[in-house]
Structure formats: structure tokens, C-alpha cells
Amino acid sequence: MAANVGTVAELVGNNEQTILPEWVGLQKKSGSLQTGRITEGELLSQSRDFLHLLRDGLAKGGNDAANPAYGPARQLLGDISRSRALQGFSPRETATFVFSLKQPLFNALNRNTTLSPTQAAELTWSTTLLLDELGIYTLEVFQKSREEVIVRQQREIAELSTPVVKLWDGILALPLIGTLDSQRTQVVMENLLQTIVDTEAEIAIIDITGVPTVDTLTAQHLLKTVAAARLMGADCIISGIRPQIAQTMVHLGVELNVVSKATLADALAVALERTGRAVTRLKNSVSGSGAHAKLSEKGQ
């Protein structure tokens, strides 16, 4: 068996001049170059490097892909796969890189007339297993790289889409954009509460124009935010509920026991009216009636 594996390594070494062009040709045929993300020169050098590392691996590690001798080959595959994932290659294109090596290799095996049919079949089988293993590894790295990209983007979106805006003295606006999951609710809540403390805001307007859907879970998250703001002594107004969303909410039986207005403008008008009385009170310096008016407003 060891002699057999040595044969493949030898075969790859000796026939590099025929295997490499055939392999690159197959890759080109399957459309690796069409998208223009990679040049022919790069493809050629990647293929050549991998072929060399594969030969070394075969010579030292046999056809066991888990053998440490394949470390450099795996490393190269990982790098190629990762860079392709970031460049936007499809999984098929990435996997083709390894799998299209099969045909040139088997052709080389067939051309070798010194092997008996049994030996040739055995070698073909073990090489298939090896290349499959390496191909799967390539796909795993590809998948992992894509997931990393997604996680990073999620984090960036979460950071970008939770601003707390000061609309007026004591009035904050929280324009929510995107789906409200529990993780984002946490960020939104922390931002809002901290801003309430910093600006001593009395009213916070939560605008959900940019929230695509409101289901029971989203409503619960909204209510949590409202409850937390209330504990800090700030009233909340919810605005920007679109007609379809209002209908869905009623159908689902979701109840927001909060003041809600159709648009942010309406909500701001209410907020100004509430805080407006407070301002009048300070001007008149008749603290009695003013404060009374403010309280009755808040008590509603």
C-alpha cells in the first residue's frame, strides 16, 4: 500500500507538466475566470502551489488527509477558500478548485501502463477519498468565512441603527430601523436609558417606521423598552405604526398600552405640548397652576 501511495506522489511529480494545464483548463471551463474576480495568472500559481503541496503530502503522509503532512496543503486551501469567500465566489466555484483536479490525476494514472488494473482501481479510489476530504475541508472554511462576514455585518448594523436623537429640550427620539430582536432591544434600551440620564429627558418618542414587521415578540420588546424608560421617570410615545402593521397587531391581539401616534410629527406635537406647559410655568413664575397643569397632563 505504501508503495502505491508513493506511486501517486511520483506520478504527480513527474506529470506536473501535463496535469497542471489540464487542471487549469478544466477550472477555466467550469467558469472560474468568467466573473473576473481572479486572473489566470493567480489561478495558475494557486494551482501550481497546491499541486506541489499535495505531492509533498502524498509523499510523506500517504492518502490520509488528516495526516499532519497535509498541514501546508490544508493551510493553502484554507487561505484560498477564505479569500474566495470574501471576494464573493459561489460555493460551487470554490469547491470546483479541488474537485476538478480528479480528472487530470486519473488520466495520468491511466496513462501509467506499469500499473495493473487492480492497482490502478485501488489508487483511484484512495485518491478520490483524499480529494473529497480536502474538498470538504475547503467548503467548511468557505462556510466559516461567510459566517464570520455575516456576524461582523450584524454587529455593524446593530451599532449603526440604534441612534438616540435629541429633538428638543427634554424630548428624545429613537428611530428604530430593522427587525427588533432581543439582542438589539438590549442595545436600544441601554442607549435610550443612558441618554435619558444624560439629557434629563422627560419624553422619549420611539419611532417604528423602519421596523418591517411587528409580531408579538417585537411588541414585547417594545413594551420592555417603554417600561424601562418609565422606571427612569420618562414617558414614552410610540409613533410611525403603518396601517398594515396596526392591522396585524390587532389581529394578533397585541396591545401596546402606550400613547401611540401615527407619525413622528404628531408625537413631537404631543411631546411639545406636554413640555410646553412646563416652559410657560417657569415664565409666569406662578408655580402653582403650572405644575398642576403639568401633573394632570402626566397623570393621563
Binding site: Q186, M189, E190, L193, Q194, I196, V197, K224, A227, A228, A229, R230, L231, M232, G233
Partner: peptide, 18 residues
Amino acid sequence: VVGMRPAVAITLVELGLS
């Protein structure tokens, strides 16, 4: 009740005590 800290407010809401 006055002067509740943001972290405390979040905790109470998560505990279901509004």
C-alpha cells in the same frame, strides 16, 4: 421612586417587574 440607574431599570424589566 427616583434616581433609578439604567442598569437597574433593565434588570427590573427583565425580571418582569415594571
